[in-house]
Design a protein around this nucleic acid. Structure first.
Lengths: 103, 103
DNA sequence: CAGGATCCTATACGATACTG
DNA sequence: CAGTATCGTATAGGATCCTG
């Protein structure tokens, strides 16, 4: 039970899983790209979520010294282990929507 | 991506998964029992979470006409389909904790 | 481009007291 | 027992503007 909470401590918030999914799907992804991928997210929140994900070692931030700088986000090996959960959540979400619509 | 969000819409909040886990583990569970199972939850929040879970058809509320009334909560068939996800989250939480501790 | 700073609102959550 | 009502605080999140 505590273990489940440990997971949720990392995945909480409105956008965290969407951010991970975006990076995961594209392998590498830039700030502005993720901003476009996720409908409704603000730069403030994206910045905040990315920072938290990095602290939790789920994503890696790479800076290239271009002008202006280029920043790429990618999943760490540890972050990649979330794929199963994300897929499960996706499958269950589809099931659930069907269930709710059917009544 | 939308599907993942559909799942999170149902599982959001500080206690939802803990409540489901409590009921799931015991098969049937009463209000005061869940209150004791989950460390830190208030009756107000438990009431709120149970109501939302019932609206989303994940749990079933059964009232027995004793004096005072007895109320039992159990998972619906649909609620039971969450077991996989909860187990995944549990396993991942353990992995993650290990990772964080190791550095 | 990749954010940071600021301000503001909404909601989540907690504590406590009360009721059929 | 199984909640509801009320109140107060904290945090999440949104909008906008600014900067190296």
């Amino acid at each position: 039970m505590r273990a489940v909470q440990d997971s949720m401590d990392v995945l909480h918030g409105k956008w965290k899983i969407a951010v991970i999914s975006s990076i995961c799907y594209h392998n590498k992804r830039r700030f502005s790209d993720i901003l476009n991928d996720i409908d409704g997210i603000s730069n403030r929140m994206l910045s905040k979520e990315l920072k938290e994900l990095e602290i939790n070692m789920l994503i890696k931030r790479t800076v290239y010294p271009t002008q202006p700088v280029t920043v790429e986000y990618s999943l760490t090996d540890h972050g990649n282990t979330l794929k199963t959960i994300i897929n499960n959540l996706k499958d269950w979400g589809i099931q659930h929507r069907k269930k709710i619509v059917e009544g």
